[in-house]
Nucleic acid binder design. Structure first.
Length: 734
DNA sequence: TTTCCCGGCCTTTTT
DNA sequence: GGCCGGGAAA
C-alpha cells in the first residue's frame, strides 16, 4: 500500500483533499492553472489503488478528444500499466460506443453514420428547398441551431410547445422532417448521439441497470461546459447513486452560446446528495500581478461560486498596455515586442497572440510575415472538414450505405459529370413522393423512362461507378479502397486540373487521406475497434473522421509564435501572452454587450485570456481599426478600466511619433481613399504597399496633410519607419 | 450546365 | 477584406 501515498506526493492540501476524498459526490472548483488535470488523474489512481475500484468500473468523461487522450496518457504513466479498456472519452464518443453496441435497442440501423454540422446544414438547406420554404424567413443556420438547441435540451419535435406561434410551429415541423430524413438515411448528428443514447438507457431499464451496476465511479471534466442534455444523461446513468467527481470552473464558462449551462455546476451541488465541495485556488502558472489583475476583473461578475487565485511565486512584471493609433500600429507594436523578447531569449513557441475574432488575425499575420517571424495559427479549417476530403468521405459513405441521400447529393455531380440541378431535382421529387431514397429513385427513374437522354446515361454511369467500386473493395484493404475511390471517381483528376496552387494542395490532401487510413489500420487509433480489413475498417474510419475531425497538430515542433482566438486558448498556457483588440465592440463584442449575462461571459473570456499568461501579459488596443473594410473609431475596452491601474503600465510610443491630424478628425478623404495626392500624385491609403527607389518596399502606416504637402509614414522592410512628403518622395503603389 | 461576377454579410467552436 | 450565395452570361 506504499504506492498509495505516492499518489499524494507533491500535492497541496486542497489537491490532496480532492484526490483522497472517500467515495461520494464531489465538486472540485478548479481555478485556472491549479493542477486540475493532475487532480483528476490522481483521483482515478487513488480510487483504484486505495479504494479498490476496478479499472472497468471507471467512467471518465471530457469534452474534447485531446483532453481524453491526455487524461489516458497521464494515467497510464502514473500507474505504469495500459488502460485501453478503461472508459475514458468524450460525451460523444461514449454515446457513440453505447449506440454501436446496442444499435437494435436504440432503434438504429447497424451501420448508421455520423454526420457533422456541415452535413447537417446541407441537409437542412435541401429540406427547405424540397418543401418550398422561404429561406429568408427560415435561414438554414437558424433552423440548424433550433434543431440542435432542441436536442441539447433533450426535446423531440412533439415535446416542443410552439404556443400556437406560426414561426415556431414551422420550425418544429422542419425539425420533424429533418429527423425523418436522418432516420431514412441512417444518419445521426452530434446532438442525436447524446439524445439517442439517453433514450436508449431511459427506455431499457435492464440496460440502464447494467451500466449503473458496472460503473463504480463517474468523473467529469469541465463541468461548467455541460448542457442540459449532458447533465440529464449523467443523472440518468448514475441514478444519482453512483458517486461522481466533477471538476469545473464557473469563471471559465465561455460556451453558453452553444448550449453550455453554467448553472449546472450549482445544480450539481444542490441536486446530487451529500456533495463535497473542494476549491483549488493555488495557481502554479502565473505571476501574482497577473492573478491579482484577473481576480479583480472577474469580481465584476455577479453570482459566482467564489474563488480567488493566489500564488506562492513571484510578483512579476506589470501588465503592459499599448494603445496603437490604428490596427497596423497595434500589430507592429506586437511584432516588434515579440522580436525583442525573442532576442532576450524567449522561444517563439512560448509566445501567444490571442484575439476575440478570427478576422483580427490577418493584419497581425501580415506584419509577422513582413518581419519574417514564423507563426502558426491554431484552429482554422480542420483536415476532415476540407471540401475535397468531405467529397471523398461522401463517396466512401455511399459504398457503405446507398441510401445516404446527403452523401449522394454531395457527390453525384462532383466532379462534373453532366448531372445538373434539374436532374437531381427530378430525383428528389420522386424520392419525396415514393418515400424512397435518392439512390432508389435514381434506379427507378432511369429504368421506367421518366428521364431521358443524357441524364439517364450519366446517372447510370454514376450508379455503375459506385457499384463497381463496391465490388472491387471486397478484396482490398482500407487505404487501397480510398486510393481507388480517389482515382476512379475522378476526384484527383478534378483537382489536378484546378488552376492555381489550391488544386495541388487538394490533391495532396487526398493523398494524405490515404496515408491517414493506412495509419488508422496499422495503429490502434482508438479504443474498442478492431481495425480489420476493408469495409469493416471503413465504417470505423468514417466514425473516427466524424468524431475526431480536429486532429491536426502537424508542425507542432517548429518554433513558431502561436496565434489563436481566446476561445481556443482555453486550457493552454504561454510564458508571454498578447491580447489584441481590447476594445469596446470587439471585446466585449458588440453582439454580447446588451445582455448582462452575455457581457459576463465576455468578461470570463477575458479572464480566461489573462490567466493563460505565465510571466508577462500585454493588452493592446487601437484607436482606429479597419473592420469589415471600414475604418472605425474604437474606444478602449471597459475591461481595461476594470483592472486596477496599479497592475498595469502604459507603454509610451517609441520614437516620438507625432499623432497625425487625420486620426483625430473624421476625414472623409482618409476614410475612403486615404491621401488624395492631387492630379499627378499617386492616390494612397493606409496599409497600402508602396515601393520607394531607395528604401525599397514598405507599407503605409499613417498619413497627414493634403495635396503636395501631404506626408505619409511608411514602414520599410529593414529600414524602419519613415515620414515622407508625397510631393518629393517617388512612391509607387504596388 | 457551368462559370463568373456582384452584392450582402460578417463572433466565438467542439463533437 | 473575404466568403458565400444567387443570378446572369457563355
Amino acid at each position: 500500500m506504499d504506492d498509495v501515498t505516492a499518489i499524494l506526493d507533491q500535492m497541496n492540501p486542497a489537491q490532496r483533499e480532492a484526490v483522497s476524498a472517500p467515495q461520494g459526490n464531489m465538486l472540485v472548483l478548479a481555478g485556472a492553472g491549479s493542477g486540475k488535470t493532475r487532480v483528476l488523474v490522481h483521483r482515478i489512481a487513488w480510487l483504484m489503488q486505495a479504494e479498490g475500484l476496478s479499472p472497468y468500473a471507471v467512467l471518465a468523461v471530457t469534452f474534447t478528444n485531446k483532453a481524453a487522450r491526455e487524461m489516458r496518457t497521464r494515467l497510464e504513466a502514473l500507474l505504469g500499466i495500459s488502460l485501453r479498456h478503461v472508459w475514458v472519452g468524450t460525451f460523444h464518443s461514449i454515446a457513440h460506443r453505447l449506440l454501436r453496441t446496442h444499435w437494435q435497442d436504440a432503434r438504429l440501423p447497424q451501420h448508421f453514420q455520423i454526420i457533422d454540422s456541415d452535413d447537417q446544414l446541407r441537409l437542412i438547406k435541401r429540406l427547405l428547398k424540397d418543401y418550398n420554404i422561404d429561406d429568408e424567413r427560415y435561414p438554414p443556420r437558424q433552423v440548424q441551431s433550433f434543431i440542435s438547441g432542441c436536442k441539447e435540451e433533450g426535446l423531440r419535435p412533439h415535446q416542443v410547445d410552439a404556443h400556437g406561434d406560426a414561426y415556431l410551429s414551422q420550425m418544429v415541423e422542419l425539425y420533424e422532417r429533418y429527423q425523418l430524413t436522418c432516420e431514412r438515411g441512417g444518419l445521426v448528428d452530434f446532438g442525436e448521439l447524446l439524445l439517442r443514447s439517453l433514450e436508449l438507457l431511459r427506455d431499457n431499464p435492464a440496460l440502464l441497470a447494467h451500466y449503473q451496476e458496472r460503473f463504480g465511479h463517474v468523473l467529469v471534466d469541465e463541468f461548467q461546459d455541460t448542457n442540459t442534455l449532458q447533465y440529464a444523461w449523467l443523472k440518468l446513468l448514475t441514478g444519482m447513486r453512483t458517486p461522481m467527481t466533477v471538476v469545473g470552473d464557473d469563471d471559465q464558462s465561455i460556451y453558453g452560446w452553444r448550449g453550455a449551462r453554467i448553472e449546472n455546476i450549482r445544480r450539481f451541488e444542490n441536486e446530487f446528495p451529500d456533495t463535497k465541495l473542494v476549491r483549488l485556488e493555488q495557481n502554479y502558472r502565473s505571476t501574482s500581478v497577473i492573478l491579482d489583475a484577473a481576480n479583480a476583473l472577474i469580481r465584476y461578475n455577479a453570482d459566482r461560486m467564489g474563488k480567488e487565485l493566489w500564488t506562492a511565486g513571484d510578483h512579476g512584471e506589470q501588465i503592459s498596455v499599448y494603445g496603437g493609433f490604428n490596427d497596423l500600429d497595434e500589430a507592429r507594436y506586437i511584432v516588434d515586442t515579440i522580436r525583442e523578447r525573442v532576442a532576450e531569449g524567449f522561444n517563439r513557441r512560448e509566445i501567444a497572440i490571442l484575439y476575440r475574432s478570427n478576422a483580427q488575425s490577418r493584419v497581425i499575420e501580415e506584419t509577422l510575415i513582413r518581419q519574417g517571424v514564423p507563426y502558426r495559427i491554431y484552429g482554422g479549417q480542420r483536415f476532415y472538414e476540407r471540401l475535397e476530403i468531405k467529397n471523398a468521405l461522401a463517396y466512401l459513405r455511399l459504398l457503405l450505405n446507398r441510401d445516404d441521400d446527403a452523401s449522394l447529393e454531395r457527390v453525384i455531380n462532383v466532379p462534373a459529370r453532366g448531372i445538373g440541378t434539374r436532374t437531381v431535382e427530378t430525383l428528389r421529387n420522386r424520392a419525396r413522393q415514393t418515400g424512397e431514397s435518392l439512390w432508389q429513385s435514381l434506379h427507378d427513374a432511369t429504368s421506367d423512362g421518366s428521364l431521358r437522354g443524357r441524364a439517364v446515361t450519366s446517372l447510370k454511369a454514376f450508379a455503375d461507378l459506385i457499384e463497381q467500386l463496391d465490388n472491387e473493395a471486397a478484396g482490398l484493404s482500407l487505404h487501397e479502397i480510398i486510393d481507388r475511390v480517389n482515382e476512379r471517381t475522378g476526384l484527383v483528376e478534378h483537382h489536378r486540373n484546378e488552376k492555381g496552387e489550391k488544386g495541388q494542395a487538394r490533391v495532396e490532401n487526398l493523398e494524405e487521406l490515404v496515408t491517414a487510413a493506412k495509419a488508422f489500420t496499422q495503429g490502434e487509433a482508438f479504443e474498442g475497434v478492431e481495425a480489420g480489413e476493408g469495409m469493416a475498417a471503413l465504417e470505423a474510419f468514417l466514425a473516427e473522421a466524424a468524431l475526431n475531425a480536429g486532429d491536426h497538430e502537424a508542425d507542432e515542433f517548429e518554433d513558431c509564435v502561436q496565434l489563436m482566438t481566446l476561445h481556443s486558448a482555453k486550457g493552454l498556457e504561454f510564458p508571454v501572452v498578447f491580447m489584441a483588440g481590447v476594445e469596446e465592440g470587439l471585446f466585449p463584442h458588440k453582439m454580447s454587450m446588451e445582455e448582462p449575462g452575455r457581457l459576463e461571459e465576455e468578461r470570463r473570456l477575458c479572464y480566461v485570456g489573462m490567466t493563460r499568461a505565465m510571466k508577462k501579459l500585454y493588452l493592446t488596443h487601437a484607436e482606429l481599426r479597419r473592420l469589415h473594410g471600414k475604418e472605425t473609431f474604437q474606444r478602449p475596452s471597459r475591461f481595461l478600466r476594470e483592472i486596477p491601474e496599479n497592475f498595469m503600465e502604459e507603454v509610451r510610443l517609441r520614437g516620438q511619433i507625432s499623432r497625425p491630424v487625420t486620426t483625430s478628425r473624421p476625414s472623409p478623404g482618409l476614410q475612403q481613399n486615404g491621401v488624395e495626392g492631387g492630379a499627378d500624385l499617386p492616390s494612397l491609403s493606409l496599409g497600402q504597399r508602396v515601393s520607394h527607389p531607395i528604401f525599397g518596399e514598405g507599407v503605409i502606416l499613417n498619413a497627414e496633410g493634403e495635396g503636395e504637402r501631404a506626408r505619409v509614414q511608411v514602414s520599410f522592410e529593414g529600414e524602419g519607419d519613415k515620414w515622407l512628403v508625397l510631393g518629393f518622395a517617388k512612391l509607387t503603389p504596388l
